[in-house]
Design a protein around this nucleic acid. Structure first.
Lengths: 288, 288
DNA sequence: TCTTCTTACGCTCGGCGTAAGTATC
DNA sequence: GATACTTACGCCGAGCGTAAGAAGA
């Protein structure tokens, strides 16, 4: 279970070829063969079927383990490396689309900073790997509950903002008049499926015992919120957004009152913060 | 960052001695010295201060990473090993104290089974490492929300039971008459601190923005629920328990209505279930 | 027959133990 | 000076590449 062997294993599995993996890793194909043989011998079972090269059942399972193992290994190295060098002049902030609020933008230093917008799940990974110094993630949670983040490495999360969530309705929709909406009112509605730009609807599923999942309508794969709101306003389906951006373009959005959920933003970082990263973190936390 | 080196490192750090670690690991003390030197060279920084042997700041951080890393490595091996051998006759069920309900006990096979009661946090670890085939964990959650479990390895969790939670009150307590209690009514109360037997109060803290933590009273370190109830009935402090056990001994317990939380029990297992484990899992899931 | 993985074999280097060295209590 | 970690050095084995072998398309 040497990480080197695991690394070759996942590469072989991904490329479905010993020789291609060898090229990518800079080994001879013989070495790759020996790696796999060693791993299979160590675990006492075949991991790959040959011709065509495909993981066995056990191999599939190993891939799940290996992924997070190698990620954590990389995270540990990156974390320690950050402690060694000097405070680092340049700064990278990774944020999910809805986590970027005006006050966060105001806190950014004018130069030597990069703002990288990524899908929600990739934020913790980016911070863990060290490809970002700080992360801003958003999500749905009960008021003052922490977000459910995949713990990909020992990261520290601190809440920086909470605000109500609202359902964006097309102009003239019958529910427009209401001051607040319950999710139960909307079980028959069609929802926009926007995994990158919108809020994760699957977190709502648990809350609504009545609804057996959400009926998806159009799917939007971009990260632009304005487009998402446009789609909702055009009647392609409902979408859930934090109240402020939901109403930013003059669209009609009604707060969601039941279940009681808030849009929460958390700041993610590793153990020690120094230099510009520390400065930015302080400003983001005291910001709103 | 070879796992062998990490293992040596955590051992040295734990024992605060190179030579003691060498004895425990079956190496010469010279080899241990070389391991640490190799690790420090690889990461480019000192990890341990010598005389006395103690982790540096970076070393402390590495310990956090190394712990979960080695655990996951062990979990991966155990998981794969379980897929290889035959379905295994003996069966071990690890459960937290409050997860063991009468219906779970009824589902247990009469022989060749072990029921191991452990503190809540150790259940996922036991299942991951393979020292238990199945796990039953309990905790507090919003209705039909999954529990927040530390993801120590790719485990599958399925809900098996949910029931109301109640506050155990001493006889004659002023709040006894009420049909239901809100946590806000109880912020001034003293709570029993029973991390192993009781429910995790820290999960409540987030829910009560008003209360700045709970005022702890007596601390109980055992796992026996009857004792815990006895302490509460004797007026040593309040305690939170699932409704049924809370009232099992004729004690006064009032359901908690706000925040809306349930006592949830989940079944934990790894990817594939075979033999008696599969049988038991099915019975536990359909049980209540 | 060509491609692709496996096996044989030799070489090199990593890693362990023995033993000598060094620093701290 | 005793204890505990480090360094020197030699030996063995792990792991890589070259090259030959086997098996499927």
């Amino acid at each position: 279970m040497d990480p080197h062997l695991l690394r070759t294993y996942v590469t072989v599995a991904r490329l479905a070829s010993f020789s291609a993996a060898a090229r990518e890793l800079g080994f001879t194909q013989s070495a790759v063969s020996q790696h796999i043989a060693a791993l299979e011998h160590d675990l006492g079972m075949p991991l790959l079927s040959r011709r065509p090269v495909a993981p066995t059942r056990a191999g599939e399972r190993l891939l799940e383990h290996a992924g997070s193992l190698l990620l954590r290994l990389e995270a540990a190295r990156a974390d320690l490396a950050r402690m060694a060098g000097e405070p680092a002049e340049e700064l990278t902030l990774a944020a999910s689309p809805l986590a970027v609020r005006p006050d966060a933008l105001a806190a950014l230093p004018v130069s030597r900073a990069t703002l990288r917008v990524l899908p929600r799940e990739e934020i913790p990974v980016a911070v863990a790997k060290g490809s970002a110094d700080l992360g801003l993630v958003d999500g749905l949670a009960a008021p003052s509950d922490p977000l459910r983040l995949p713990d990909v490495a020992p990261l520290t999360a601190t809440g920086v903002a909470e605000e109500p969530v609202a359902v964006v309705l097309p102009d003239g929709h019958p529910l427009t008049r209401r001051p607040g909406l319950r999710l139960a009112d909307l079980v028959d509605a069609r929802w926009l499926d926007a995994p990158e730009a919108g809020l994760p609807l699957d977190q709502l599923r648990a809350a609504t015992a009545t609804a057996r999942g959400f009926r998806p309508a159009l799917r939007y794969e971009g990260t632009d919120i304005r487009t998402l709101i446009g789609l909702a306003a055009a009647g392609h389906g409902l979408t859930l957004l934090p109240l402020a951006p939901a109403r930013a373009y003059g669209t009609v959005a009604v707060p969601l009152t039941e279940p009681r959920l808030v849009h929460r933003t958390e700041l993610l970082h590793t153990g020690v913060l120094r230099g510009p990263a520390e400065e930015l973190a302080r400003r983001l936390q005291s910001g709103p």
